[in-house]
């Protein structure tokens, strides 16, 4: 019985705190994406670099983010694992991690005109990383080449 109560408390508090934090995170992501929108981040390689200009520097830009799911999402995903279909519980987890990683890459890069060759790597980390059927935290690592042209 105690275990059941503990479980319900964890699920309910996981839902409330998790939802609150997720909403706050999404507000932050959307605001920063709008703020940083002037800087192009593309997956194309050197072909996008403007050859009419000289390059001042081209450096590695990187950013990573680790996001964990809450207890409610873990519970929901275990239910969804039984019946199949869209595991909606994990969608926001991966989405938040990748967008946050890209934002951090942009924020940490030196002032630049374009970030080329942007890539995102995703991996599961934490206690349950190598266990089957369970997702603990997701790490997203975004990297690219930050290019700054010389001012003429």
């Amino acid at each position: 019985m105690e275990q059941l109560i503990l479980f319900v408390v964890l699920v309910v508090s996981g839902y409330m705190v998790g939802t609150f934090l997720e909403k706050r995170h999404y507000r932050s992501i959307e605001k920063r994406e709008t703020d940083l929108i002037r800087l192009p981040v593309v997956t194309l390689e050197e072909d996008v670099i403007d050859e009419t200009k000289k390059i001042r520097y081209a450096v590695l830009a990187k950013g990573n983010a680790v996001i964990s799911i809450d207890y409610f999402k873990r519970f929901l995903s275990s239910l969804q694992n039984i019946f199949g279909g869209n595991v909606t519980a994990y969608q926001t987890l991966v989405d938040r991690a990748r967008r946050e990683a890209v934002l951090r890459m942009i924020e940490q890069a030196p002032p630049s005109d374009i970030i080329t060759n942007a890539r995102i790597e995703t991996s599961a980390i934490g206690q349950s990383a190598n266990r089957r059927k369970s997702v603990g935290s997701v790490e997203a690592f975004a990297y690219g080449t930050a290019v700054k042209y010389k001012d003429d």
Binding site: Y15, F72, K73, F75, L76, L79, Q80, I82, F83, N86, T88, A89, Q91, T92, V94, D95
Partner: peptide, 17 residues
């Protein structure tokens, strides 16, 4: 954001349960 299916997680949880 098309990556995220718009559903109510609570509703989904109750249906599955």
């Amino acid at each position: 954001n098309l990556n995220i299916v718009k559903t109510s997680p609570l509703k989904q949880c109750f249906i599955l349960l």
